[in-house]
Amino acid sequence: MRIALFLGIFLLALPVGATATPEPAMTLLFSFETKADEPRWVAVNDGVMGGRSRGGPAVEAGVLTFSGVLSLENNGGFSSVRTVGRDFDFSNATAVLLRVRGDGRRYQLRLATDARFRGITVSYGGEFATEAGQWTDVRVPLADLRPSAHGFALQGPPLDASRVRELGLLIGDKREGPFRLEVDWIGLE
């Protein structure tokens, strides 16, 4: 009822002969409402290389929370979460959309395919900013994602969006201390 009333008022407010420009269509990937529809999320922190950062995922009350403490000890400095057990075809998408509530720090969206560089999985990442305590909608264009392997920037290979094996979130902003990112939903444009 509220949507119909809003839409009616919006259409009445348009000048005669004007048309409403439709918003780009979004395909919802995850709403975090039911575990049956969601992939499993796992943590990968800098402990894999001797670091001391801690972080991980929790899905409760329709929200994915990625939180922990970033440490720069032992050349560490990153924490991440990623999906496992589900493949994705993003070939018809131009961007990944997220509704997030952050802590004012910068995070990365990460995608991985079966691409390898010297036997190491290639990840494709793009940064996004958050506003402390505020829900914001984030758009990360697929064309802006840059390849890397173990944190080293690569010139290629290009992202094969039809073969996404992992979707993840990462913090590695070189600032020690606690972090917290909440995700309401993730979709494709």
Score class of each variant (00 low, 15 high):
residue 102 G to L: 04
residue 185 W to M: 09
residue 110 R to K: 12
residue 69 V to H: 14
residue 68 G to E: 09
residue 18 A to R: 07
residue 186 I to Y: 00
residue 154 L to C: 09
residue 159 L to T: 07
residue 183 V to C: 05
residue 59 V to Y: 05
residue 95 A to Y: 02
residue 106 R to I: 08
residue 152 F to S: 13
residue 69 V to K: 13
residue 64 L to H: 11
residue 54 R to H: 10
residue 76 G to A: 00
residue 187 G to C: 03
residue 43 A to W: 02
residue 168 G to W: 13
residue 65 T to H: 00
residue 130 T to W: 04
residue 95 A to F: 05
residue 109 L to Y: 03
residue 183 V to A: 04
residue 142 L to G: 08
residue 36 A to L: 12
residue 45 N to H: 01
residue 38 E to S: 14
residue 50 G to I: 09
residue 137 D to G: 06
residue 19 T to K: 10
residue 82 R to H: 12
residue 151 G to H: 00
residue 10 F to E: 14
residue 51 G to N: 04
residue 37 D to F: 10
residue 91 S to C: 04
residue 75 N to G: 09
residue 76 G to C: 00
residue 74 N to S: 13
residue 40 R to A: 13
residue 64 L to W: 06
residue 103 D to L: 00
residue 96 V to P: 07
residue 79 S to F: 00
residue 33 E to Y: 02
residue 132 A to F: 05
residue 14 L to A: 14
residue 118 R to A: 12
residue 29 L to K: 08
residue 2 R to Y: 06
residue 43 A to N: 03
residue 41 W to Y: 15
residue 4 A to V: 12
residue 27 T to G: 07
residue 2 R to L: 12
residue 51 G to R: 01
residue 174 K to H: 11
residue 128 F to A: 11
residue 50 G to C: 09
residue 81 V to K: 02
residue 106 R to Y: 02
residue 53 S to V: 09
residue 107 Y to T: 01
residue 81 V to C: 05
residue 106 R to H: 08
residue 48 V to H: 04
residue 31 S to H: 08
residue 135 W to H: 06
residue 30 F to Q: 02
residue 138 V to M: 08
residue 86 R to K: 14
residue 39 P to S: 10
residue 6 F to W: 11
residue 188 L to T: 04
residue 93 A to D: 03
residue 43 A to S: 14
residue 41 W to K: 00
residue 83 T to H: 09
residue 175 R to D: 11
residue 10 F to N: 11
residue 82 R to A: 08
residue 156 G to W: 00
residue 150 H to I: 12
residue 113 T to D: 08
residue 56 G to W: 02
residue 80 S to D: 00
residue 121 T to I: 12
residue 151 G to N: 07
residue 125 G to M: 10
residue 76 G to M: 02
residue 67 S to R: 12
residue 8 G to N: 15
residue 175 R to N: 15
residue 113 T to W: 05
residue 144 D to C: 03
residue 22 P to N: 06
residue 111 L to Q: 01
residue 101 R to I: 00
residue 24 P to I: 06
residue 113 T to S: 10
residue 96 V to I: 14
residue 96 V to L: 14
residue 16 V to Y: 05
residue 142 L to K: 01
residue 185 W to K: 02
residue 55 G to W: 00
residue 176 E to A: 15
residue 189 E to R: 10
residue 32 F to V: 05
residue 165 R to C: 06
residue 105 R to S: 11
residue 73 E to S: 13
residue 101 R to N: 07
residue 55 G to N: 01
residue 65 T to C: 10
residue 186 I to F: 01
residue 120 I to T: 13
residue 164 V to A: 11
residue 136 T to R: 13
residue 59 V to H: 06
residue 166 E to V: 14
residue 139 R to Y: 04
residue 18 A to T: 06
residue 43 A to I: 02
